[in-house]
Amino acid sequence: MTTPLTCYTATTGRILRQLRADRRTVAMLVLVPTLLLALLYFVYRDMPSMPGMPTLFDRVGISMLGILPFIVMFLITAIAMQRERTSGTLERLMTTPLSKLDLLAGYGSAFSLAATVQAAVACLVAFWLLGMHAAGSVWLVLLIAVLDAVLGVALGLLASAFARTEFQAVQFMPLIVGPQFFLCGLLVPRGQLPRWLEVISDVLPLSYAVDALQQVSRYTGATAVMWRDLGIVAVFALVALTLGAATLRRRTA
């Protein structure tokens, strides 16, 4: 008898095998955030900083360790899921005992494993090759970066449920990612935003991810605020995954 656990693990294994066979996608997953961080380092390398204060690269770069995996995983997940739909693979899968939640959970797990590798490589390069400094533990930065990437996976799966083509899936990126990038506190501290924009930023998950990274940047240990922010990000990811399962169409047309 086919159990939900069997369906879930089979889906996860299938997606991981597909990823392993697609070397260009793997290269994009692993290398793009790292290369962009390296570019950011050279942009800010010669910028002056106050004695005893973090450099501009330290302040901006640690936030980008969460933002870049989020963006990359959102884009790749949305396109990959939409490709399953347009190729007819999704419709064939839905004729099996595989449930919608099993399917999306399998996708989420497979891409989350890829996100862990992505975040680990980015943190390794940032802290040990580019000299990034943070008051807190690198392991906390890695944990937050992985959770941000998982959030990108969940929102990518949700966005793909409303798209009919891969191009439409990409079009959701400026709608979902753009406002979060502008209002997360990276460009302007959220407390300095106009009140109506601050209210919007308070309901966007990337704001809490950036806040958690800033907590690690400033404090030597894990703070209650950091754990609260991580909990909020995790809840957003679970809600997005659940909504994605509820709105997933069984037919491609």
Rank of each mutant, 00 (worst) to 15 (best):
A122P: 10
Y208C: 01
A246R: 12
F57S: 14
L157P: 10
R85K: 15
L187R: 11
I62T: 10
G244V: 12
V117Y: 01
A159P: 13
A212E: 00
T96C: 03
P189F: 03
T242F: 13
L157Q: 13
T95D: 11
F182E: 09
A245K: 05
T9A: 01
Q180H: 05
V216L: 09
P33K: 09
P51F: 06
D58S: 10
G156Q: 11
L187Y: 07
Q214K: 13
V203E: 00
S137T: 08
A115D: 02
F127L: 06
P51M: 08
T12E: 02
R195Y: 08
V121H: 05
S109T: 08
T86Y: 01
T12Y: 02
G185F: 06
H133C: 05
L130M: 12
T25Y: 04
L31P: 10
R85M: 05
L129G: 00
Y107N: 05
P174T: 13
M1I: 15
A246N: 02
D211G: 14
V170G: 05
Q82L: 15
A78F: 10
Q171K: 04
M50Y: 11
P4W: 03
L19W: 00
A126P: 14
P69S: 08
F74S: 01
L40I: 12
R17E: 01
E166D: 13
T165V: 04
R45T: 10
Y208T: 02
R59I: 10
T165R: 10
V203G: 01
I67Q: 02
L68G: 06
P205I: 11
A114T: 03
F182W: 09
A80Y: 12
L175R: 15
A154W: 09
L158N: 06
R83Y: 06
A135Y: 07
M1Y: 14
R195P: 05
I176A: 07
L248T: 02
V72D: 12
R45N: 06
D102L: 03
V30H: 14
M28P: 06
R24G: 10
R218Y: 15
Y44I: 04
C184I: 09
P48Y: 15
F236G: 08
D229T: 12
M64P: 07
L93W: 02
A134I: 01
R14F: 05
D211A: 15
F172V: 02
F172R: 14
V239A: 12
L40G: 12
W128T: 11
M64I: 03
V203F: 11
A212S: 08
W196G: 03
D202Y: 08
I79V: 15
T247S: 15
Q168I: 08
T25I: 14
F42W: 07
L35W: 13
V239G: 01
S87N: 14
A253K: 04
Q168R: 12
E198P: 07
S112P: 08
L197C: 04
M47E: 14
G231C: 07
S207M: 05
T89A: 11
S99H: 08
M94Y: 00
V138D: 11
V43S: 05
Y107G: 01
F127E: 04
C7I: 04
P69N: 10
L238A: 09
M226I: 12
A159Q: 09
A110W: 00
F236N: 06
A240N: 03
G108K: 00
V121E: 07
L104A: 07
I144T: 11
L241H: 04
V117K: 03
G221N: 14
A209I: 09
